[in-house]
Design a protein around this nucleic acid. Structure first.
Lengths: 225, 225, 225, 225
DNA sequence: AATGAATGAGCTTTCATTCAT
DNA sequence: TATGAATGAAAGCTCATTCAT
């Protein structure tokens, strides 16, 4: 009946803890992660999870919304802390990729639309685009960003790059994603060729790296059956 | 296993039909697609599906393996039909994106490793890398591809670009992916600036496009409940 | 794909078995009976139960509809087999009470309306009223039934008498219901006083009967805790 | 337990408020009503509810006991205020039906026995039968009540009539119950035919009344989903 | 060999009960 | 003391897999 003053402290901490955990668990376990598992990792009972989020969809929605908030924060930080808009852009894109929103985007499958079609998500997206737009405009002003690349393009690219390569061993997947991010940034860059993405990942190198991981993985897999 | 001659035609057609359908259904419905649903779309009973693929994992495995085969075919066709290696590379990357292996990569969640760690998949990957490597080598020879970008990089980029942007309306998602693919290719290109990806997708444009779709989506959503 | 020819035999038997069991279990265990319990008693897996009835509400609906069918059959049999319409009416009312639709009516609580507001139930009710109406008309013709009592009154009375007295031991509850049924019939009867309901159930007798049951019940109750 | 003097007033009011609310909620929502719902309607927190009644069973027990008390009061009032015993009896039966103990009897389902087997309930029942017995004896003396109908019969009938007809629209259910009560009373009456229950409820009339309600009900049903 | 009904383990969700505030 | 957030056992329901037809 009170306007939610005192008790909220615990509840709020709990809520945030759950969202944070959910992102992590979804990223690691994939879309199949169970509610119980998430609750467990968040150190709460399932009941508590359900008190905060009436159903699975609501939780996913919250994680998505929270992810947008973080991206906005990321964009703002990048813009205010970097001297050059291009550096801010680069930092933003790299930062987004590290948020590991990964598999989440595919969690709900066909229902994603419903989850993402919320006014709250829409507004978050708008705020993000707004923040990003300033960086993009500045980068255009600097002459560093191709003029035929807009904030929408950056968002689209991030939507793809933000995920993982779950079929590959974790570290290799990370590395390849990093390199792809750099390629995209290179592709966005105006005239002067951007910093090269390091040494090429050749076919041979990739195969060698893959075979290295072959053995380690065999161990921990029987437990699922 | 190899002794049945005549019946093979029907069986094979059935098997391929199921794989084809499975890819489509996974791409549309997401990882949550059920075996019954796939069987239904493939116009067979679940029993038949299980006759061909002992369990869900086997089906996913088959779809992945088949996807690799298609990519190899794509690479070969591109190489033999295009005069310039760069064009072959570009055609290959664009073609892969259209295979709509989309959500499949995340279907199995945590089990993906197990599914992808099969010798058959490993071999398929090797063949693909091999085919791709020839294109990459030729492109290097042409001077069109940056020397610090290898076949492994191309594969990594494809792994990310091959998916959709399920939170966006289908056509908008497609367009943004297309543009990102072009950006990546631009980033891979050596000195001479590559063909620009058209007109920039600005923040305003993106938001406008999103709001256009707001209404259409409301209709088809009740059926899930 | 076939028009449901051969396999249906088993399925139909199963379906009927489940409905039959559900009525019995609801009557005995009360509205709290679980789906698993019903499935168990019906000798099928829960999955089978759910294949036939998508959810709890559907099952309740089916039991209600089936109950109506039985009542119609009861009315028809009574009318064709009894010489006097009054006897048919009496037999019908007594018979309905024995169907033990008991607690079912309250199973769904507030949702009962939704369950009972189906066209199928409505039609069943209409058929029942129709069958009953003929008996009532004949009984009126015989001069045995008060003219200020109609088929609707009979239905209303049955709706109340059909249930049990779950707070009492089973046999005592049965006996009292029987007696109440006779009282209602007596109240419906025209001029000549109907057969008396036997010896009075006095307060002392009722209390004595209740105390008899006190001990027997203590045993089987600990298992619930 | 009996040592607290001053606070008792508030506590007692609270306790009674909860019992009263519980009866109403059980009557409306059916046996599925949750503790939270009852607490909410009673304007208290669940914690408070549990302070008064250690568990659900205790609450049900209290409502039952309270119901018995009210019936006793009803019987006493009827006896002292009516000149004729028959009128007292009639008033008592009608009054009980209005208590709306309705669905409560089936709330506990299989556990009803345990709840109703309490000494307190037993004693309440005894008191009620005692009070009722005096009315019945007087009615016998008046020659208005059939001698083969005892207080136990009246109790049994009330147990059945006290409930509602939840599958019907509220007002129609009420009307039919009223008419059934009158029929039972008519059946209990000695020689002289009792006052007729008004105009017959014919099958046609019942169906007409049912169809009238068809539309109104559709509205309030979505809120459950 | 193909079919789809049956199965039941396991996941989502609810709610009686407890307990920190 | 009253409150309502947290808890987790248990219920409803789903769907991968099996098996009778």
């Amino acid at each position: 009946m009170r306007t939610t003053g005192p008790l909220r402290a615990d509840a709020r901490r709990n809520r945030e803890q759950i969202i944070e955990t959910a992102r992590a668990v979804f990223a690691e376990q994939g879309p199949g992660a169970t509610m119980d598992e998430i609750a467990q990792h968040a150190q709460v009972g399932v009941g508590t999870l359900y008190r905060h989020f009436p159903d699975r969809e609501a939780l996913i929605h919250a994680v998505l919304a929270d992810g947008l908030d973080r991206m906005v924060a990321l964009a703002d930080a990048a813009r205010s802390e970097e001297t050059w808009a291009w550096d801010a852009l680069s930092r933003f894109v790299h930062g987004c990729a590290e948020l590991r929103l990964d598999l989440l985007v595919s969690v709900a499958g066909a229902q994603v639309h419903r989850v993402a079609a919320t006014p709250e998500i829409g507004e978050g997206r708008a705020r993000l685009l707004d923040a990003l737009d300033r960086i993009v405009a500045a980068a255009h002003g600097e002459g560093a960003l191709r003029t035929d690349v807009g904030a929408g393009d950056v968002m689209g690219a991030i939507g793809l790059l933000v995920r993982g390569l779950p079929t590959l061993p974790a570290d290799l997947g990370e590395e390849l994603r990093e390199r792809t991010v750099r390629l995209v940034l290179a592709g966005m860059r105006a005239h002067p060729a951007p910093a090269p993405p390091g040494t090429a990942m050749t076919a041979g190198e990739l195969i060698r790296r893959l075979s290295e991981h072959g053995d380690e993985q065999g161990d921990e897999q029987k437990k699922d059956e």
